[in-house]
Amino acid sequence: MLSRTILSVSALALAGALFAAPAAAQSAAHHDHAAHAGHDAKPQVPAQRWATDAPLQAGMRNLREATETLNHYEMGHLDDVQRDNAVEKIDAAIKDMVANCKLKPEADAALHGLLAKFIAGAGAARAGKFSKAELVPMQEALALYPQMFDDHDWGKPAH
């Protein structure tokens, strides 16, 4: 279990480092905006939704499933093993999206703002301190996703 925890923490640290790299590389004109990405500010919905790719779509579906599981956990319906499985699903989804998504820089930055909510929720759950305070931002990120990204299959039932 300790090795899984170390791997999960390492995956989140890697994801954090990968998220920081694009922000650090942005021009000075975008520096202020990038410096605040992932904070409590609500991501801006673009005038036209950004295109998605298969890794983004699959990753967001996995995040939605894991968030639903954590919702049941927060209500006391699931045990710690099921919580940990949801956290592992979040870690894997984020790792896969970071490794495989090919988005335009603006869309990538917006995605990072959404993913920060899942990283925070997973961290709290991993620490045994998951509550509505972490769940609600995750649910809000899921609600924002189809407003920000053009994912035609988002509302359709899973196969």
Score class of each variant (00 low, 15 high):
Arg49Thr: 07
Gln147Phe: 00
Pro55Gly: 07
Asp108Glu: 12
Cys101Ile: 07
Glu88Tyr: 02
Ala58Trp: 02
Leu142Ile: 09
Arg126Trp: 03
Ser131Gly: 03
Met148Gln: 13
His152Ala: 15
Leu12Trp: 15
Val87Asn: 11
Lys102Arg: 14
Glu134Val: 01
Leu115Tyr: 07
Ala120Leu: 10
Leu56His: 11
Ser10Ile: 01
Gln82Ile: 09
Met138Gln: 15
Met97Ile: 08
Leu144Trp: 03
Pro157Cys: 05
His30Tyr: 08
Ser27Asn: 10
Lys104Arg: 13
Ala24Ser: 10
Asp96Cys: 00
His72Ala: 11
Pro105Ile: 07
Met148Asp: 03
Ala141Thr: 05
Gly121His: 14
Leu142Gly: 06
Pro22Arg: 12
Trp50Pro: 00
Ala109Arg: 02
Tyr145Met: 08
Ala143Phe: 01
Met138His: 06
Met97Asn: 04
Ile90Gly: 10
Ala11Arg: 13
Leu14Gln: 12
Leu14Lys: 07
Ala92Gly: 02
Lys102Tyr: 01
Leu12His: 13
Met1Cys: 03
Lys129Pro: 00
Ala17Lys: 05
Asp151Phe: 03
Glu68Arg: 15
His39Phe: 04
Asp150Leu: 11
Ala17Val: 06
Glu74Ile: 02
Met97Tyr: 06
Asp96Met: 10
Leu18Asp: 10
Ala93Glu: 10
Leu14Cys: 01
Ala47Phe: 00
Ala92Val: 04
Arg49Ala: 15
Met60Gly: 01
Ala58Tyr: 03
Leu144His: 03
Met60Asn: 05
Leu111Asp: 03
Gln57Tyr: 00
His36Cys: 03
Lys102Leu: 08
Lys156Glu: 13
Asp40Met: 09
His31Gln: 09
Phe149Ile: 08
Ala37Val: 11
Lys104Ser: 12
Asp96His: 09
Asp40Ala: 06
Leu103Lys: 14
Asp84Lys: 12
Gly121Ile: 12
Pro105Phe: 04
Ala92Leu: 13
Ser10Gln: 08
Lys132Thr: 04
Gly128Cys: 06
Gln48Lys: 13
Ser27Val: 02
His152Lys: 13
Asp84His: 09
Ala24Arg: 08
Ser8Glu: 07
Cys101Gly: 03
Ala15Ile: 13
Ile6Cys: 05
Leu14Ser: 11
His77Asp: 13
Ala141Asn: 09
Asp40Pro: 00
Ile90Glu: 03
Ala127Trp: 04
Leu144Thr: 07
His33Glu: 04
Arg4Glu: 15
Leu7Cys: 03
Lys89Ile: 01
Ala86Pro: 06
Pro137Asn: 05
Pro137Ser: 09
His159Arg: 10
Ala54Arg: 14
Glu134Cys: 04
Gln147Leu: 14
Lys42Phe: 05
